[in-house]
Design a binder for these strands. Structure first.
Lengths: 218, 218
DNA sequence: CGTACTTTTGAATCGCATCAAATCTGGTGG
DNA sequence: CCACCAGATTTGATGCGATTCAAAAGTACG
C-alpha cells in the first residue's frame, strides 16, 4: 500500500473502525480522507464561543453540551449531543455562538471546515443530505422550544421522553443534573418530580434511563 | 414585450414591487418566474400540521406564527415571522410539523417546493445561500431556547429585546398577548412586568415598540 | 479513608398562573 | 351620534409550584 501523508488518524486504514455508520453514509469519499479523530476529556471545551470554526465535530461516543454562559457564571445548556454533528450551523459562520463542552470523556471525528464547505459546493447529493441534517436540527430545536414553554417539571419531562425518547425510554447517561439543566429546571425539582412520578407509577428509573409506564386508565 | 403564460402574478413585470430585496438577492431567475402571491386574512392558516408541503412561503408583510396545538386547545407559539421564509425546514420533509397562522392580514409569496428543491440541487450558489438561511434559523432557535430557560418574565423580555431587537428597540405590532405567548408567560404577567419596568425607568413603551432605556448605573 | 460529586430530603420564600372583574379600545350598525 | 360588542388592557386576590438555601446521606475514586 502506498505510504500517505501522515494524519492524526490514518483514515484510509481505519475507516471501518472509527467512522460510524451514519457518517459513512453521509460523507463523500474525498471528505473521509480528511477526517481526523480526537478524544476529549470530561469538562474540556470542544470549542469556545467567539472562536473561528476550523473543524466540524462529529460525536462518536460520549456527550457534548452546547451552552451559553452569562456574565455571572450561570450557564444554560442549549443542547446535548450524544451522536452526530455538533453545531452544524457553525459551518457557514465566522465565529461560534456558544461553547461546546464534553460532559464525559468523548470521542469525536474532526472534519476541516474549508473542505466540508468546498464539498457542499461541488456535490449536490452531499449538499442535499447536509440540508436534511440542518432541517432535523431545526425541528429538534422547535421541539425544545415547545418543551421549555411548558410550565411544570413533569410536563417538560414527559414531553422530553415522548419526543426524544425511543418507545418511552430516554437514556440518562450523564446524570440527572445535566438533564435538569437541559430542561431548564433545578436539579432538586427534577429529583422530586421523578420521585413523585415513580410513586404514582407513571415512570420507572434505572441507572441508565427513564422509562415511561403505560397508562392503564379506567 | 412578449406575452407570457398567465400566472398568479406576472413576476417578470412586477418583480420590483412584489419581491422584496432579500428575496430578489436570494432567488435565482428561474425561481422568480414561478413565484406567486397570496393574501392571508387574520386568523387563517398558511399551512397546517400534517399536511404535505407544496409551497414554500415568504412573508412580505404582516405576521405569521408557527404553533403547535395540544389536545386541549392550548397552543404554543414556536416562532413568529414578520419577514422572510416560514419554516424553511419543511422543504425536505413530507409533512408539516406545526401550524402556521396569520396573526394579522399577511402578504406572502409562494414558491413551489418541487422547483425549489430542484434548484437547490442544480445551483450551488443558491444552495449555499439557502444553507445560510437554515443556519440563521438554527441560531435564532437556540437563542429562543436560551430565552425560555430564563426564569423571570423580566429576564426573558430583556433577553428578547437585546437579542432580537434593533438598538434596544423591539416592535410589537400584534400586541402584548402575542408577545406573551412567544415568551411562554401569561399576558397578565407580561403586562405587569412592562408596567414595573416602566416605573423603574428600564423600559419605554410606545404603541409600536418596546424600547430599552440605557442604564445609567453609578 | 478522605475528597468530590451526586442524590435526597427539608423548609422558607417568591414569582407566576389562574380566576375574576373592571376599564378601555376600536369597530359596527341603528 | 350613540348603543353595543369583541378584544385588548389593566388591576386585584389567591394558591401552587419551583427556586433557593441548607444539610445529610450515598457513591466513586485515588
Amino acid at each position: 500500500m502506498v505510504k500517505r501523508t501522515p494524519k492524526q488518524y490514518d483514515c484510509n486504514h481505519m475507516n471501518h473502525t472509527i467512522l460510524p455508520m451514519p457518517l459513512q453514509e453521509l460523507l463523500p469519499d474525498g471528505l473521509r480522507q480528511l477526517a481526523g479523530g480526537a478524544l476529549i476529556r470530561k469538562g474540556e471545551h470542544v470549542f469556545s464561543a467567539g472562536a473561528k470554526p476550523q473543524w466540524m465535530f462529529f460525536v462518536v461516543r460520549g456527550e457534548v453540551a452546547l451552552e451559553r454562559s452569562g456574565a455571572h457564571g450561570e450557564h444554560v445548556i442549549l443542547q446535548r449531543c450524544r451522536g452526530g454533528f455538533v453545531s452544524e450551523a457553525s459551518l457557514m459562520v465566522d465565529a461560534y455562538h456558544c461553547d461546546a463542552i464534553a460532559l464525559e470523556e468523548t470521542q469525536v471525528i474532526k472534519l476541516p471546515v474549508a473542505a466540508l464547505r468546498a464539498e457542499l459546493q461541488s456535490d449536490p447529493i452531499f449538499s442535499s443530505r447536509w440540508m436534511r441534517t440542518l432541517n432535523a436540527e431545526i425541528m429538534r430545536l422547535r421541539m425544545q422550544c415547545e418543551r421549555l414553554s411548558l410550565h411544570s417539571v413533569q410536563e417538560r419531562l414527559l414531553h422530553l421522553i415522548q419526543t426524544e425518547g425511543m418507545a418511552g425510554r430516554y437514556p440518562i447517561p450523564t446524570g440527572i443534573k445535566t438533564l435538569a439543566s437541559q430542561l431548564g429546571v433545578s436539579h432538586e425539582a427534577l429529583y422530586r418530580t421523578i420521585t413523585d412520578m415513580k410513586k404514582h407509577a407513571l415512570l420507572d428509573r434505572t441507572a441508565e434511563a427513564l422509562i415511561l409506564m403505560p397508562r392503564n386508565e379506567g
